[in-house]
Design a protein around this nucleic acid. Sequence first.
DNA 1: CAGCGTTAGGCAAACGATTGCATGACCCAA
DNA 2: TTGGGTCATGCAATCGTTTGCCTAACGCTG
Lengths: 370, 370
Amino acid sequence: MAKSAKTATRNLPRYSVPNLVGTPPRSVGLKTLAEHLKLSVATVSRVLTGAPAAKSIPKVTQDRVFAAAAEMKYRPNVVARSLRKQQSMTIGVMLPEVSEGYATLVLSGVEERLMEADYFYFVVSHHHRAEMIERCQHMLLDRAVEGLIAIDTPLIHRATVPTVTVSGHHEPEGVTNILLDHNRAAALAIDHLHRLGHREIAFIKGQEFSSDTDARWEGIRLAMSARGLRIAPQLVARLEGAAPTHDPGYAATRRLLAARKPFTALFAFNDVSAIGAIRAFREAGLHVPEDVSVVGFDDVHSAAYQNPALTTVRQPLHRMGMLAASQVLDQIGPARLPAVQQIVVSPELVVRESTCPPRAGYAVLGKPSR
Amino acid sequence: MAKSAKTATRNLPRYSVPNLVGTPPRSVGLKTLAEHLKLSVATVSRVLTGAPAAKSIPKVTQDRVFAAAAEMKYRPNVVARSLRKQQSMTIGVMLPEVSEGYATLVLSGVEERLMEADYFYFVVSHHHRAEMIERCQHMLLDRAVEGLIAIDTPLIHRATVPTVTVSGHHEPEGVTNILLDHNRAAALAIDHLHRLGHREIAFIKGQEFSSDTDARWEGIRLAMSARGLRIAPQLVARLEGAAPTHDPGYAATRRLLAARKPFTALFAFNDVSAIGAIRAFREAGLHVPEDVSVVGFDDVHSAAYQNPALTTVRQPLHRMGMLAASQVLDQIGPARLPAVQQIVVSPELVVRESTCPPRAGYAVLGKPSR
DNA sequence: CAGCGTTAGGCAAACGATTGCATGACCCAA
DNA sequence: TTGGGTCATGCAATCGTTTGCCTAACGCTG
């Protein structure tokens, strides 16, 4: 009893004042600094920020100012500065959720680039709920972000600040969209399977809310018909549910198997669902790639470490993040570059162990290929 | 000339320019609203914020104010508010890097909890560089964050705001530390292997910069000796390099194999390295779990979807993130609860497919077990 | 009717910076 | 001597809120 009470007091951070928990010590401001230097705050500010008017201030004075600032550990109050200059040095990032995989990889690119520019960012996740997207956008604007990056997030309204989307489709005009060349991506995958000899190919389509779904599907249709291949309706399953885990891919694959239409290869919507698919195949007693080949999408870190290592279409996610950040920065920077409409990046096929030629005369479910 | 000079001096954002991308329209402030209502800004502010002084303002007036605010789409300027109230409604999160896995899962918990409280957060990653940690801490404090959450980040100095660490060790006093019961975690894993019949167990230790490394190792030593098992120095490898990928685990395992000291099970530092290890085993022609059992740590989403599915010690990362956020919020909230020293959460063993009894008389490398 | 408590709301000072416009001193040319 | 130009610096407004203190009117009590 006494002990616990003691522990509690002991845990208080102890500033010199009795009960100051969490109260930051009054830090020196421009005012204090100016008084100490016997100069006006204006002058001090100009020197410290290197304002143009500082040119007329003699070097000796400048040095005094810098020295004092360093000595007194002056740190500018960014909130006050933001208010006055009307710029927050902050941008907002919207994404479906903070989780392993896609959005996170893009985010790491965004962060890298922003940090170089001394910009910070807020992250909000909307879990694919449309009304949340609206709300998030508002909240970020309320927070005075200077720009917005929306990752896999369908925007409805154009914001009042420069906005760039990563993998957005049908975006309001004026927003820059960074996207993958989905036609080429599909062509790479289909071509690979086709060359290996696959003809009956199954597909896992993305969730309807995912911005990439339609473009990718279109790419697949093009690629298939260009090679004279037909897409059998029974061989396409759609990811259901918003969970950012492997479950939807697993479930979709089970549906595919239940349809009992033979196929020798599967092209999944992303690596995460491909991994779910592989598990579903294993449980059905099928071997990847001997019985069925699997191609993923994205090339997340763990793809190379799957068993079998995943053949996949790599999306340069980190770079897309950097590009997105660069774009907003360019648009809000002093140059105020106008928004470009879109930036298309190229996919790359990474062949690993989950694909191989189909067994002669054999297709999934043990039925002879037609 | 004169004209351009003039334009330059008033380097105002130019609203009338044709291409309007990103120029925020002058939004209505308290001032405008007050004029429109023929009231003072003070009154309007009090009504809108529900300040105590608003009690003496008659309902009719209040309704008028609310109506006008809604109609004119008034949105308070949070920067100004922050400046005045000296609180930013923002907390700072420090982590090694934004990547798949550990930190991200914790982050998702943090975000969930913060969002409920209308707090936003800044994320900075320091890539394990000590001087970056210092710098990040400073930058966040400069940004007026009200609290700090440090994930797997060794803090050197105590900040002036409430701070909580997730998996921190030897933290400066006054910071709340949220950590796993590593002794129990190790006991769970070792006990599992021991019961299966394993005696020669190899280990992958964490990188030296990882806060969990020491505590976990201590737990392992305890658990091993409690069961009368010896840790052979040749059977412990350390993760090298900061890369948040599977490579270090892969490399460590190869070193283990190169040491040619037989073992029948491996306890890896985390799931990511366990996955790397499994790949190394496969390349060496060994099967998991028949030839060698593997236990991971963390239970990241993909653990259940590995092939074989990973037996692992689950760390409630999401919950730890929520706890961390709750703690800071409690400490900066109106109640100003004092910091508790630490919160210990419990691990859980998840048995899947990567472990099984050792083959009789057989250990890795084909040498007979001693 | 003096005095006081309540009600309804306004004034103006913060918060901590940035910046347009003065100002006063100095120098130099006309 | 006057006028104009550069130098070195200061004054004070501004960014959009919040909030301590003030006032003026009203109603009530003794």
